[in-house]
C-alpha cells in the first residue's frame, strides 16, 4: 500500500515537473524543475529496488550536471523577445521530433496494454542474494569490460578534444608561479628602516 501511494505521488510530481520544464517562462525555473524531475525519477528507481542507480542519478545528474546547467543559465543574459521571434522557424523540425517521440511512447504503451500489465521482454531478476551495486559491477567490469573501457576511451578523447578546442595561449599574460610565491622569504619582502622623527626617509 505504502509503495503504491509513493509510486503515484512520485509519478505525478515527475510528470508535472517535466511539463513545467518546458512551460516555465524563466529558464532558471526550468532548470529547477528539471532537477525536481531527476529527483523524483531517482525516487522511482528506489521503489523498483534499484537503489544504486537511484543514488548515481542523484550524484551525477542532480549533484553535478544540473549544477552546471544552473550555473550557465544564471550567467546567460537571455532575451525573451528574441527567443520568441525565432520560435516559428524551428516549429516544423520540433514538431517532427515530438511526433516521433509520441509515436514511440504510444507503441510502448499499446504493447503494455495488450500484455495486460504483465512485464514484456524483461527477464525476471534472479535472486542471487547480491546487492545491485555488486550486480552492476559484475556486468560493467567483468562481463562487458572491453565495451566499457572503449566507451570510457571515447569519452576521454571527447574531453581532450573539448579542452584542445578551447585552450588559448595568449602572449603577455601574467601567470602565477606558485613555487615562487611559497618559496618567498621574509627577508625578501620586509625591510626594517630606522626612521628618525621629523626627518622621514629622506
Amino acid at each position: 500500500m505504502l509503495a503504491t501511494i509513493a509510486f503515484y505521488v512520485l509519478a505525478v510530481i515527475a510528470v508535472i515537473s517535466a511539463f513545467a520544464v518546458i512551460s516555465a517562462r524563466n529558464p532558471v525555473h526550468s532548470v529547477l524543475f528539471l532537477i525536481l524531475t531527476f529527483f523524483t525519477a531517482a525516487g522511482l528507481f528506489v521503489l523498483l529496488g534499484a537503489e544504486f542507480l537511484a543514488m548515481l542519478l542523484v550524484i551525477v545528474y542532480v549533484g553535478a550536471v544540473a549544477v552546471l546547467f544552473l550555473f550557465v543559465v544564471m550567467m546567460l543574459d537571455v532575451d525573451f523577445v528574441e527567443l520568441k521571434q525565432g520560435f516559428l522557424s524551428y516549429m516544423p523540425i520540433g514538431a517532427l521530433i515530438a511526433a516521433a517521440l509520441l509515436a514511440e511512447l504510444g507503441l510502448v504503451a499499446s504493447a503494455a496494454v495488450s500484455a495486460n500489465g504483465a512485464p514484456i521482454a524483461i527477464a525476471p531478476a534472479e535472486n542471487t542474494g547480491i546487492t545491485n551495486a555488486e550486480a552492476i559491477g559484475q556486468v560493467l567490469y567483468t562481463d562487458y569490460l572491453l565495451v566499457f573501457q572503449m566507451a570510457g576511451l571515447v569519452l576521454f578523447v571527447a574531453m581532450i578534444g573539448a579542452i584542445v578546442l578551447t585552450l588559448r595561449h595568449r602572449p603577455g599574460v601574467r601567470k602565477q608561479d606558485i613555487a615562487a610565491q611559497v618559496g618567498r622569504k621574509r627577508s625578501e619582502g620586509v625591510e626594517l628602516k630606522d626612521i628618525r622623527p621629523g626627518q622621514g626617509l629622506g
Partner: peptide, 8 residues
C-alpha cells in the same frame, strides 16, 4: 548524494 545537493 545528499551532501552534493547542499550546493543548491
Amino acid at each position: 548524494a545528499i551532501s552534493s545537493l547542499g550546493v543548491y
